[in-house]
Write a protein that binds this DNA or RNA. Structure first.
Length: 450
DNA sequence: TGCATAATTGGGCTTCGCCG
DNA sequence: CGGCGAAGCCCAATTATGCA
């Protein structure tokens, strides 16, 4: 799902081969502000609804400020700023027509199961909407919604705008060998591009491919092996062509490090076997075409080197961008976790009786809760509170009994659900604090007990 | 208008892949 | 190998909708 300001867009899976193009739809979701149960009750706002991905004549175009004054504005009161020129007047007239339609259509379409909507949104609107969507979402739509396929395929600027809007100018532009779609596919797609192992996510920018580790290893060869091939190519030594090969770097354990070539002894430069074979084939072809014309051969070689250098520069930028993004995200998550700790500690101290930080830290539910990288709020606290109270009470009871240490403190606790258990699902064992035998509330840091 | 049901939403948890 | 994060699943609560 994509969120942009107060709008969300969710792609519903629609089997492409169904051929029911007119029925393709997405879901425009009303993003309520988080708040009390009745907070949104009195509001009249756009509700979540499905919209068909169709080109419907006369469909509405969104106007600036519309979201704020849908209820108040009326077509007859439409005001045109003084000094408007003829073009603006024409637009205003058109606006008036559209607003009339909008006024009639003010209430969102009611959706019912099995009923197809008659209203739609035109392609210009879709272009605008999708321009503000996450490229990952576009990718999903392209593959899952038949009616979106051509639209997304034929509008590369849509992808570019989406990328710039979502990730800002710091994300590198794609190299000349990649279309915007291919670029998005490499960034957000899943699955090995060779064996189709579904969970592969790692993209090797040096090779512009997403592969699983096994496929990567099977498709690459070390520099010395590549040189053997280049040396024996048609009985001729063409090792000097190696600069025209995209390269990556492996460490001594065979792990991929980054775009090549390697500059230190401990790291190994690798090439793709297919690239080496292709280079030899192309060289052979060039030689056969112009056996005596060395200038053309040099031009061909130089062109290939330029491409490789361009890809290398791009891959380096991309690797840096990924690392920076990862670090930023990690920092953000840490901040959220810290915020949760502080919030829950504060709330726990306000309970009656209060739960101290030491007691909190002995509660598995607290430890699980502060490992979740999301901002805390009252709802999450209300979820946590009953669990904490129970665990703290059990802890206190055991302490009063002078309880015995639990040999496997969290075995039956950490994998449990956060959902409060019903009376019929209460574990047969009473809650056992995980750290008995230690001073209460001071779990050994990085303990190997769990 | 009230009830039944579908749809939506947010939070917690688990699994799995990636990374250091 | 442990930690971390993405993704997906589950669940409970809430809201929207249709129908009698």
């Amino acid at each position: 799902m994509v969120n942009a300001k107060n709008v969300a867009f969710k792609v519903n899976k629609q089997t492409p081969f169904s051929q029911t193009l007119a029925g393709a739809y997405g879901t425009v979701i009303n993003c309520r502000k988080p708040g009390g149960k009745g907070a949104a009750r009195g509001q009249k706002e756009v509700r979540t609804h499905h919209v068909p991905l169709a080109n419907v004549p006369g469909a509405l175009k969104r106007k600036r400020g519309e979201e704020d004054c849908n209820e108040q504005r009326h077509p007859t009161t439409l005001s045109i700023p003084s000094g408007s020129d003829a073009a603006k007047s024409a637009v205003a007239t058109l606006d008036q027509t559209l607003l009339n339609q909008q006024w009639q259509q003010r209430k969102p379409t009611r959706l019912r199961k099995g009923k197809i909507l008659s209203k739609g949104v035109d392609l210009d609107c879709w272009f605008t909407i999708l321009s503000f969507s996450d490229p990952a979402q576009l990718l999903e739509m392209r593959s899952k919604i038949a009616s979106c396929y051509r639209f997304l395929r034929d509008n590369p600027m849509l992808w570019k705008h989406s990328r710039n809007y979502y990730y800002g100018p710091n994300m590198p532009d794609p190299p000349s060998q990649l279309s915007e779609f291919q670029y998005a596919h490499l960034r957000h797609g899943h699955g090995c591009m060779s064996c189709h192992a579904p969970n592969t996510r790692k993209t090797y920018w040096a090779f512009l491919r997403r592969w699983c580790k096994t496929c990567l290893q099977s498709k690459t060869l070390k520099e010395q092996d590549a040189m053997v091939l280049l040396r024996n190519a048609n009985g001729e030594d063409i090792t000097y062509l190696h600069k025209a090969l995209p390269s990556g770097i492996f460490d001594s354990w065979g792990n991929f490090v980054g775009v090549g070539p390697a500059s230190t002894h401990s790291l190994k430069t690798v090439y793709l076997l297919s690239d080496v074979q292709k280079l030899i084939a192309e060289y052979t072809q060039e030689r056969q075409r112009n056996p005596e014309e060395l200038a053309e051969l040099r031009a061909w070689h130089a062109k290939k080197i330029d491409l490789v250098e361009e890809r290398k520069a791009f891959a380096k930028k991309m690797e840096l961008w990924e690392e920076t993004t990862r670090n930023t995200k990690s920092f953000d998550y840490q901040a959220k976790k810290s915020a949760r700790k502080a919030y829950y500690e504060h709330k726990a101290m306000q309970l009656s009786p209060p739960i101290t930080l030491r007691e909190l830290e002995a509660c598995p539910s607290y430890r699980r809760a502060v490992a979740i990288p999301k901002d805390p709020n009252n709802t999450s606290w209300l979820q946590l509170k009953p669990k904490l109270e129970k665990e703290a009470a059990d802890l206190a009871a055991l302490r009063a009994q002078g309880g015995t240490p639990d040999p496997h403190p969290t075995m039956c606790l950490t994998s449990g659900t956060s959902t409060p258990l019903g009376s019929n699902t209460v574990p047969s064992q009473p809650f056992l604090p995980p750290l008995l035998g230690y001073p209460v509330g001071l779990p050994p840091p990085h303990s190997h007990l769990f």
